[in-house]
Design a protein around this nucleic acid. Structure first.
Lengths: 231, 231
DNA sequence: CTATAGATTTCGTGG
DNA sequence: CCACGAAGTCTATAG
């Protein structure tokens, strides 16, 4: 890992063309040769970057670059595509290198899979008397998150999202169309369950006779068996 | 901008919970208080981070943290939500601060808008004798990228993507359904145009009678009027 | 390996 | 400010 703070201009050419005018920025060079150009704001996304696999070549500035005040020209070239990042370094304020080694990596908890597990355990959230058939019920176009039966014995297909968007309604619609062709299951009702359901998604779902169910993750986690938690 | 290279462990709690075991990493603290935790690999995405608006508090390690070898404990708290990042710093290898100022920002060229502009100019790519009606043809659910007429005078709606995904086909389907309700336009054929079309998207489009058109961006750019280019 | 779906997505743009 | 679509998306998972 090498960190350089320098006045520089940057040009990227590849899937698009982009240019950064001369300014002071942070340049991060990782062990795999990838380069990130960060400013003092924004989010975690760099202003510009090159992803691995790639190669960094550093050359002394020459010709018009040198005339414009550049000291070094960094060329970061993707190994497979013709993506290229060119950094013209005009002034170096800091330059630090250190060996970090391989990171042990991240441990996560709390994504959509967890919501699905909790709803399967708390299937009565669909309404009193509902029974779980199975999670990840297979169909020709992919697994339905949850298949259940209501108290009358009718099938209920549930699509679970963290954020309920229009895409999720389309996905569930495709599943329902397929499931309803199966005489053993039909008629199958749809439930669109999410922590948050966008207004457009709600309108579309309602228009298609799909019920919307807002899930309270914290409450569901609170009811979760403590012994089965990941943490 | 402050850059610290330190042995640390990191815990995030908010929309999910995540933990990074003790290891040496790069910590970037931006002027707005946001913090990025980078390892020596991966892509431009940090292992862990906190986005602005947020506040960083640094305290001397105490109690069990101190007993475990920590020197400092950084708490990064989101200003609005209860998202929180806790960095336990065990050993500092480098610590550098510098004033970067506001970045002049990025200049881009070459995204979907450019494809749309080029296809509108080269409308014969849809087939000989096609005529452009207009770009961004308005409908109740949003603008259609391109509306054209074929040699027989029939309407053609074009949805343009850089990468043709199943979502794009769904989007075009919704437009077609709406456009075909307009007696002045109906019948409207659909064309799904993209630099690259995913197999599932192609199957779905074909099944719905939508034609797929692969666009060669470089060739289209080559035919572009040089005088009208952004660069 | 490719292909698909999710993301602590982030980032514009338009209403 | 919210909502939606695009991204040089990135990343994990399934096939």
């Amino acid at each position: 890992m090498r960190v350089v703070i320098a006045k520089c201009s940057v040009d990227y050419s590849g899937r698009l063309d982009a240019h950064l005018p001369l300014a002071t920025r942070l340049l991060m060079v990782k062990a795999d040769g990838s380069v990130l150009v960060h400013s003092d704001g924004g989010s975690y996304k760099p202003l510009n970057w090159m992803s691995p696999p790639c190669r960094l070549d550093v050359a002394a500035a020459a010709g018009p670059d040198a005339a414009a005040g550049a000291v070094e020209v960094w060329t970061v070239q993707n190994a497979k595509t013709d993506d290229r990042l060119v950094v013209r370094v005009h002034e170096v304020h800091a330059d630090h290198s250190i060996e970090l080694g391989v990171d042990p990596g991240l441990v996560k908890d709390g994504v959509e899979a967890h919501l699905q597990k909790l709803l399967a355990e708390q299937i009565a959230l669909l309404g009193p008397g509902h029974q779980l058939v199975r999670r990840e019920y297979p169909t020709a176009i992919g697994p339905v998150d949850i298949l259940a039966r209501d108290p009358a014995g009718a099938s209920v297909a549930v699509e679970i999202k963290r954020r309920g968007d229009i895409d999720g309604v389309e996905q569930l619609t495709r599943y329902l169309e397929l499931l309803n062709r199966d005489p053993h299951l039909a008629p199958v009702r749809g439930v669109f369950a999410a922590q948050e359901i966008k207004p457009q998604a709600r309108v579309l779902a309602t228009d298609r006779g799909i019920r919307c169910l807002v899930l309270d993750y914290d409450a569901m986690r609170g009811l979760d068996d403590v012994g089965s938690r990941l943490f």
